Simulated assay, not measured.
Amino acid sequence: MFSKTDAEFYKENGYFHAKQVFTSDEVEAMRGAVEAIIRRAAETKYDKNHTWEGDYLGDEDVRKLVLKGFHDVHYHHAAFSQAALHPKMAEILRGLIGPNVMLHHSKMLVKPPEKGAAFPLHQDYPYFPHAKHTMLAASVYLDDADEENGAICVIPGSHKLGPLPHVGRYYLDHREYPISKATLCPAQKGDVLFFNYLTIHGSDANRSSRPRRNVLFQYRDPLDAPTVNTHFDWGMGLMVTGENADYFEFRNQLNKL
């Protein structure tokens, strides 16, 4: 049961760890769907390595590491659309965003055993800036995660800093924001980590013999308008709870793409 105390924690710290939102059966359904996507993609031009690149990694390191990521997974398999609309998710989202919640996009991120790439610390804001900053991520853990296999880390309260300059729009300067500066958020499969898109977060490499599979849903208030016409595509717009009072303007924006 999501409480007022939970909402206050999120407001103060910029993140909230919800335990056992999904059952083992629901997690297994999403795991199977993830494997099916990877298997189908391997036979197409869409099979790419999404490892972050930059001066924090040498070329040799980049070649060794792997990160599999695919957007709009709720169009690939019903397990993800069911997860995005799950009653437990909707209850928490109403407490964090308000009565009206829209799905912005979804994606999966897979760090394979022993060579899963790190995510340097960053904010999600540069990718899809919005006026009221209601945007948040809900990262669903499909595996137990700890320091060894690259659990997500956050800097509590960093959302209060507002938008920060990023290196090439992708990540914060690793000399000023090393991963060691962040708080590890270990989790069990079925848990969900919610964090505001201004909250600084990232994860270390997967050095274990276990995979680290996550599905991420990005949500916002439908009246929180984008300030830049970017990351605005056909994978968004599903209402999770409440109504979209700005639907016709939203449709006009989509029609212009």
Results as ranks from 00 to 15, higher is better:
Phe217Asp: 01
Gly54Ser: 09
Met89Ala: 02
Pro156Gln: 05
Asn13Ile: 04
Asp72Phe: 13
His130Leu: 11
Ser208Asp: 10
Val62Ala: 09
Lys4Asn: 14
Glu91Ser: 10
Asn149Ser: 07
Asp224Pro: 00
Pro178Thr: 02
Met108Asp: 10
Phe194Lys: 01
Ala90Met: 07
Tyr247Ser: 08
Met30Gly: 00
Pro129Glu: 11
Lys19Trp: 03
Arg169Val: 02
Leu142Lys: 06
Gly190Leu: 02
His174Arg: 11
Val101Asn: 10
His231Gly: 09
Phe195Gly: 04
Ala36Pro: 03
Met135Gln: 15
Ala182Tyr: 08
Gly162Cys: 09
Ala245Cys: 07
His71Asp: 14
Ile97Tyr: 07
His231Thr: 06
Met239Cys: 01
His130Ser: 13
Pro113Gly: 06
Pro226Ser: 06
Met1Gly: 09
Ser81Arg: 13
Tyr127Gly: 15
Asn196Ala: 01
Lys181Arg: 15
Phe16Asn: 04
Pro99Met: 05
Leu238Gln: 14
Asp233Met: 04
Thr199Ser: 00
Leu161Gly: 12
Pro126Val: 00
Ser106Asp: 08
Pro226Trp: 06
His159Gln: 13
Pro211His: 11
Tyr141Leu: 14
Trp52Arg: 14
Pro120Leu: 04
Leu172Gln: 09
Ala7Arg: 02
Ala245Glu: 14
Leu109Trp: 12
Tyr127Asp: 12
Phe128His: 15
Lys189Ala: 15
Ile152Phe: 14
Glu43Pro: 00
